[in-house]
Design a binder for these strands. Structure first.
Lengths: 225, 225
DNA sequence: CTCGCTTGTTACCGGATTGTCACCCAAGGG
DNA sequence: CCCTTGGGTGACAATCCGGTAACAAGCGAG
């Protein structure tokens, strides 16, 4: 999920970007009107957060330009908190509005609400540590790296591992979750699946940093932070 | 357009109802949790405005109950303006939030924004990137080119793809949206539909620029504005 | 009824995914 | 030292899945 954040205050922009990145969003930034429009066209973000007061222009212009070509949710930020701004923003097609100062938690709650309203929240996405699994797109993103494409079985395996991040998941449970039933004696399948998954997601597949083996028990997803 | 307003303060409720009625909405009212649920079930409103503080309960309960059965937009009202309320409301699936006191104008602007967001106000047209889909005329215009005529199924497919432009939409979701039911095993229909649609809209159907395949997952509408 | 368009069905091709087998290595017990 | 066990690895086969074509079945308009 990609979010465009526009603000001319470097500190606030960094804070917003950090909060969003922590929550698993990809953030693209801009500091004025022209760069915001350029980035929007180039990156096609899923949501835009626009400061109203910008050097040489306002967030209203950006909002208006975005609305002409797209229906992505737009959230406006303002320090003023005046009703005029609010009404004007909503009339221009903005979807929400936040008054500075705001807490990162509030920002995230509102962003999530907007995405859900827009029907963009996949419903099927989970994350743990720096891992973000998209169950619908079958992709895994490790930290800020490019998403990796996964197969159906790999997705199912990661689903249960991420759901139990940091804890050992027994071989039997893995087998039944991924293949659902089976003589459940088929450990070879699991070996292969883990092997193939490691080739895709581990930096050094011979020395797994994420998908740890718990000898005699099962596997464990190691999450830092 | 029918709106449910819930508040235990008769004066405020009357004010809200009046403002909404002036703007052309049909308003149904309730003053506590049980009556709100009853009215909601009986009247099936298109939007709900809920006060948080109610005698013998809270608007949260109503919101939760509504969300279990419906996706209509919900707006919460509170006098407190505490962040806890905001976060909780949004987590429960509320779509917006207004702090008392508020002006009728603000209320209306927000209500309209919500309805627009919910797609209840769309004139039967949607666009993303350079694509413009007319749901009534069953036509698609790509950039500045001549509109292409679409069949019913093709329109439905594009509808969900455009609504999720740039994102993978899983096979299952596509099947249920277009055909709505099916043992969901009928991937062949989807294959054919996509194939036929590509013949119509892609410059080079063998090398799709718009309707991308996400192997093992689903399809994605690629928007390069 | 017939024409023409839309939708559903069957079949085949090629590449990706998954299942199977054979073998390696390391640890542990007799 | 030999054997067994559990896991990792590579190669290959079976199967699945998407793209394509051809054709049949539905269906509305005239």
């Amino acid at each position: 999920m990609k979010i465009l954040a526009v603000d001319d205050d470097p500190d606030l922009l960094a804070l917003v970007a950090f909060a969003l990145a922590q929550a698993g969003f990809v953030v693209v930034k801009a500091i004025d009107v022209p760069s915001a429009l350029r980035v929007f066209a180039a990156e096609a973000p899923d949501l835009a957060i626009l400061d109203i007061n910008l050097p040489g222009g306002t967030g209203f212009e950006i909002c208006e330009a975005i609305r002409k070509q797209s229906r992505v949710p737009v959230m406006m930020l303002t320090a003023r908190g005046e009703e005029e701004d609010l009404v004007r923003a909503l009339d221009l097609g903005a979807d929400d509005y936040l008054t500075k100062p705001f807490s990162p938690r509030t920002l995230l709650a509102r962003v999530r609400a907007l995405l859900r309203r827009a029907g963009l929240e996949t419903g099927g996405a989970m994350s743990a540590g720096g891992l973000h699994l998209d169950l619908e797109a079958h992709t895994l993103r490790v930290g800020e790296a490019e998403p990796v494409k996964l197969t159906k079985l790999e997705t199912r395996l990661l689903q249960i591992l991420i759901a139990n991040a940091g804890h050992v998941v027994g071989t039997e449970r893995l087998l039944t979750h991924v293949w659902g039933h089976r003589g459940s004696g088929d450990r070879q399948l699991l070996k292969q699946l883990v092997h193939r998954l490691r080739q895709k997601v581990e930096v050094d597949p011979a020395e797994p940093a994420l998908l740890k083996t718990e000898s005699g028990a099962g596997y464990r997803l190691d999450v830092k932070a």
